[in-house]
Design a protein around this nucleic acid. Structure first.
Length: 479
RNA sequence: GGCCCCGUCGUCUAGCGGUUAGGACAUCUGGUUCUCAUCCAGAAAAUCGCGGGUUCGAAUCCCGCCGGGGUCACCA
């Protein structure tokens, strides 16, 4: 048995989105499951569409999710180079074989002539097939014309690990360009050679290539290259419509999710669930479990909409499983600058308090800033509060004064604070709804925060009392 | 338009001839001394795209239709 070798072969035409990275994930999981190899190959044969920095983006996206490769543009291997633009002589060698066998010929048509033929076919409502217009005496190929594959049309039936039996008639097989007039090969040609030379066993790619497979099958035959196993995952669709994810549709980059603080485990879990499950009711899978359980034959046939709600839920789940130190380490790039004035223990405690309401790391500043800095009084929080807005400002002021009096003698240990707040409720004869909301707003100036006792215990006596007094002053002045 | 693929709650899905069609996200309700969240309990949500067959019995098998998508480049 040959070892399983899968590959991810993107073209560097822009940033990777969730659809592309899922294909990579599936291929990676197959390789890991079989204890084989996963290869990264860059398909940069379109010199016009190549985008600077795209390879870096691809590599960074894969690294973010921990999808590692054993051979690639940055890792030499026995079948390199792994960048197609560096393999041109190989493609020409194979192209020459086809010419020698009479299975490739120079295309003598100009672009205008071709367009004309296509228009004609369109007007006759017939599909355009180049092979109906093969030149009788093609010129010898000198590299200045495109080189075309001379097809041998027939009906094909083939197997796909995901989609099952697929078939198409001879009308799907045509003469297509294998070497462009700039000397670069087309995808249709060179991916077959590369997959063969690189000993790829499973060709996992997205659904838009299905209509081309009969053409590929014809070429495999002409090149005497054995078929790999085909597996075609369904498209990943936009959240809001039924079209596949694309940059044009405003799909987020994979790295955008990294920037917003989606943990790799959550992202992997989300992406794999688009089209795959193990048949149980499990929703959460560690990467190790996925490697063990993943199976292409259980991949869905129909497209799946990307769902950011579910991604956030998963991410929250993984964040909650972190301990305070782990969360602290992951948060360094997200903490507000003002946190630098505090020691790590304090910052860790803050993160511990907000952990269960954190959906993604970029939320950290809005959830924690009041722990690190004094915020201006936002009276709207009281005016728009459904119980506090019904109480007169002077009554609120009196409640705050009573609170300061009670809290002043406390040591702000959590347990003692809870007792203290309870006493305060009794003394003022108030509902927690009123009193706790009031103190919470005074001390955080935030619409939401962790529970009151925990919050002010961590904040400390000095800041808590200072902030309450500040609100008292404000209320006195505005009266 | 030709060819090809797909079609179960709003979304992701379980289901492979006999189920009260199950789970998860989202939504809504209640509980956890305040808010937000977590957690717990519960509700609502799919006449299995439609119509025919086959069968004692169909979401599951067959056919037709409809709907959606993909593809018809010197792009991948």
């Amino acid at each position: 048995m040959r070892p399983t070798r899968t590959r991810f072969a993107p073209s560097p035409t822009g940033a990777l989105h969730a659809g592309a990275i899922r294909t990579a994930l599936f291929a990676w999981l197959v390789a890991k499951h079989d204890k084989g190899q996963f290869i990264l190959r860059i398909e940069d044969t379109d010199q016009v569409r190549n985008v600077e920095g795209a390879v870096d983006n691809i590599i960074a996206s894969l690294k973010y999710l921990g999808l590692d490769w054993s051979e690639g543009p940055d890792i030499a291997g026995p079948y390199g180079p792994y960048i197609q633009s560096q393999r041109l002589p190989i493609y020409h060698q194979w192209a020459n074989k086809l010419i020698e066998n009479g299975r490739a010929y120079a295309d003598p048509y100009t672009k205008d002539q071709l367009d004309q033929l296509r228009d004609q076919a369109k007007q006759q409502k017939k599909p355009f097939l180049f092979r109906n217009h093969r030149p009788d005496n093609p010129p010898k190929w000198d590299g200045s014309q495109p080189l075309r594959f001379k097809s041998d049309p027939k009906t094909y039936q083939w197997n796909d690990l995901v989609l099952g039996k697929l078939s198409a008639g001879p009308e799907s097989v045509d003469d297509f360009i294998i070497i462009k007039s700039d000397g670069y090969p087309t995808y249709n040609f060179c991916h077959i050679i590369d997959d063969h030379l690189m000993e790829i066993t499973h060709l996992i790619r997205s659904q838009e290539f299905i209509p081309s497979v009969p053409k590929f099958l014809n070429l495999y035959e002409a090149l005497k290259i054995p078929l790999p196993i085909f597996a075609t995952p369904p498209p990943v669709l936009n959240q809001d419509n039924d079209r596949k994810l694309s940059k044009r549709e405003g799909a987020k980059q994979v790295l955008d999710y990294q920037r917003m603080g989606i943990l790799p485990e959550a992202m992997i879990n989300m992406i794999v669930s688009l089209g795959w499950n193990d048949g149980t009711t499990d929703e959460i899978y560690s990467t190790e479990q996925l490697i063990e359980k993943f199976d292409l034959s259980r991949v869905q046939k129909s497209g799946a909409h990307f769902n950011e709600d579910k991604l956030l839920w998963l991410n929250g789940h993984y964040i909650r499983k972190l301990n305070d130190l782990e969360l602290f380490k992951l948060s360094t790039n997200y903490l507000p600058d003002s946190s630098k004035n505090f020691d790590d223990t304090y910052v860790q405690s803050v993160l511990g308090l907000i952990k269960e309401r954190l959906k993604y790391l970029a939320e950290i500043p809005v959830l924690t800033n009041f722990f690190f800095e004094d915020l201006p009084i936002n009276i709207k929080l009281i005016d728009e509060n459904k119980v506090l807005s019904k109480i007169s400002k002077s009554d609120l002021k009196e409640l705050l004064i009573a609170s300061v009096a009670e809290l002043e003698s406390n040591d702000f240990q959590l347990k003692n604070l809870v007792d203290c707040l309870n006493r305060l409720l009794e003394k003022t004869n108030q509902q927690p709804k009123v009193l706790f909301s009031l103190i919470r707003i005074a001390t955080t100036q935030a619409p939401a925060s962790p529970p009151l006792a925990e919050t002010i215990s961590l904040l400390g006596k000095e800041k808590t009392l200072g902030r309450i007094n500040q609100l008292i002053e404000y209320l006195v002045k505005s009266n």
